[in-house]
């Protein structure tokens, strides 16, 4: 019987969403149009339209050592061209943001090649070659993994994940990289991810409503959402892992 990955336990909607986002066969639903130029502006690593600076000559011009792994693994576009390694970092509000740090790292690892995700309590960073990064970022910002109000693209000064929301529903941002335009209802980025002002505003769409967020979130939340302890299967699985890890320290043979 062929192995079929299960991705995660749980019977709740949160667990279901986690499995959905991790499963590469599930196509992430496209919600908003974000152009390549918009992403380049938000990332702030290079000027839009400029050439990709390189860290090394293209692989085709290099003498590569004889290595079976290099023959086996097809390099990504960025690696082929010798691009620099650059990053995008997300802050996700614990008030029902669709993506959450650990989930993001799992999902990206299943979906993308040549990445180095880093998970922290309230933010998640992914590093890869610049060309690949821009391709992945368009998907990460344009699809259901992103909400303009409750997810922020923040390279530095990321505080906001565990704070109460502002009155207009936006997550706290000390540098106020994005603003909610009350007339149009759109969220506009006015600074790039590290807080430098942009030449033009970048529109990332309207914030999703509370109902949509609760149906698409990947965080358990006892106030208003699905409480972790209500998902018995999840608890059973986590307790089993915890128990096995603890026992293994004493009795590796068990």
């Amino acid at each position: 019987m062929a192995y079929k990955p299960q991705y995660g336990p749980g019977t709740s909607i949160v667990a279901e969403n986690r499995r959905k986002y991790m499963d590469p066969s599930h196509k992430l639903e496209k919600i908003r149009d974000v152009t390549d130029e918009d992403i380049v502006l938000i990332l702030g690593h290079r000027a839009p339209g400029s050439a990709y600076p390189s860290a090394h000559p293209p692989l085709s011009e290099q003498q590569e050592p004889k290595c079976p792994i290099r023959k086996l693994v097809e390099p990504t576009e960025g690696a082929k061209h010798g691009d620099r390694v650059r990053y995008i970092q997300f802050t996700d509000s614990m008030y029902f943001a669709p993506g959450q740090p650990y989930l993001r790292s799992y999902a990206e690892s299943y979906r993308y090649r040549g990445i180095d995700p880093g998970t922290l309590s309230g933010r998640q960073i992914v590093e890869c070659r610049e060309r690949d990064l821009e391709k992945y970022s368009v998907e990460l910002v344009g699809t259901e993994l992103f909400d303009p109000a409750r997810t922020g693209v923040r390279g530095a000064t990321v505080h906001g994940h565990s704070l109460r929301l502002a009155e207009d529903g936006m997550m706290f941002d000390m540098l106020q990289r994005c603003l909610l335009d009350k007339k149009t209802g759109m969220v506009n980025y006015v600074k790039n991810q590290i807080g430098e002002p942009l030449d033009r505003v970048v529109k990332v769409g309207k914030p999703m409503d509370e109902k949509w967020l609760k149906a698409h979130t990947t965080i358990f939340h006892s106030l208003g959402g699905v409480a972790f302890r209500d998902d018995e299967e999840y608890i059973e699985y986590v307790q089993r892992i915890h128990s096995l890890r603890t026992k293994y320290g004493f009795m590796p043979m068990e």
Binding site: T157, L175, Q176, G195, E196
Partner: peptide, 13 residues
């Protein structure tokens, strides 16, 4: 702090 350290931080709030 951060890469934009020392620059102005316009904030509507």
């Amino acid at each position: 702090y951060g890469p934009a350290r020392g620059t102005e931080n316009p904030h509507t709030l």
